[in-house]
Design a binder for these strands. Structure first.
Lengths: 143, 143, 143, 143
DNA sequence: TTTT
DNA sequence: TTTT
């Protein structure tokens, strides 16, 4: 029964997150994330191999994604692999594998090129680690 | 372009690995791995949620899997996520996500209940970490 | 300011955990964990390199360690690196680096070779993943 | 004997790497890396907790660090924990724990603010993942 | 399809 | 101090 199911990604968003706000007050964000590796092949040519991942974030990460993540941003995401099935129009069972994030950190510079020290305020935490994992004596919400 | 694409799993094999030996001398092993988590739901009932992962191992991990891994065995696998596409009989594009392992450790007791000290020899390393990552001054092959 | 500080270990306890119950109701467990890697050196000799880690677990993982972990057990531990300083008898500043666990899974067979189905009861969950990270709609305590 | 000893860090360099080139042709780089987490304490005040890690990189990562890493840069580092002992001037045994990197990715923007598209060339790969782990059919050196 |  |  013991199990570990962990995914660690550092990549760039292929597009802005799509965020849906559910009736129960929760939100869910979806976006694709590209992780690229570069190497030289036998011919000595530089080759880039890009892998795309389907990311799913739930409250409170979904709201943070909505506010701070944009197409092109580089993020660290830790989560778990989940595969769900559905029936397509031909009646075939199909499977989609997604990474459900549980920790997220926006990497690199200012989220959208804004300078620091703006009155925005939210900017101040955009590079902080955010998660839905409580620390001792802490409030894990970034603001 | 920087990227990290890492998966860490501890789970149990759903069945024996299927190993194909290719014409080019390489081998590839496939098997499904279950990772389970148990929790209590709101009604206080214990619930087990199992996720199945498609594992792919190439030489030399494939041969090690062939020799030492059996249905039910618990293993640690580190690898990367890859999604490949193919066309089904209805002409639809379909996708399969797999974990391509790059490091593997057989966990727990003797692989199949055999006692230690058999003449088999190979048994002695079945719980050693195996990988295709060279260490300094080392031979990464387990035997 | 963004940061990730993650340690993932699979190893064996060098001795039984030492558990202290604090006045504030919390408990803390300490033990050393060995992670070994085996390789062949240039002379073709098998060499084992063992690294020892100082593990610290707080409530509720400390109580779980107290009940289920014993010298020799193999565990998966995920946590973070922390270094604390203290002054030795010569007035020198000294540093100790520890891994503060936040998720733990007992690996392999029965904790101490006991068969399943004992009246102990607690035994039943000893191989379940345990953590202090809440899941949705779940009770993360193992019992 | 099975073991996993893995550290994953995303942090910022506290100072430029110190690189020594050894007589045997190998190089070793040392620097400290800060990983910070921010949270709100019980008083609702934002608190930042910074942990410092001793990083050690060997050839070829050492040379890459020498060329591309500078104080303040944000990097992803994957490696293993090692503790080595030494005797201090008072004859006491002392221990230092370090993270020996095996994979590294420079995060965020241009390494030192240089614009892209320079003739430098090396710039082009500074954000690529670098490691001493061979891929199939690849040259793992970044240039 | 695994495991407890 | 563990494990195989």
């Amino acid at each position: 029964m013991a199990g570990v199911n962990k995914v660690i990604l550092v990549g760039n968003l292929g597009k802005d997150p799509e965020v849906r706000h559910l009736d129960n007050g929760r939100a869910v964000a979806n976006f694709s994330l590209a992780t690229s590796e570069t190497y030289k092949n036998k011919q000595g040519e530089r080759v880039t191999n890009t892998e795309w991942h389907n990311i799913v974030l739930w409250t409170p990460l979904a709201e943070i994604a909505e506010k701070f993540l944009k197409k092109g941003n580089q993020v660290y995401i830790e989560g778990k692999l989940t595969t769900r099935s559905w029936d397509d129009q031909d009646g075939n069972k199909r499977y989609t594998t997604e990474v459900v994030g549980r920790e997220m950190t926006l990497l690199g510079g200012r989220p959208d090129g804004s300078s620091s020290g703006t009155g925005n305020g939210g900017d101040n935490m955009a590079e902080s680690p955010v998660s839905n994992i409580p620390e001792d004596d802490t409030d894990d919400l970034p603001f």
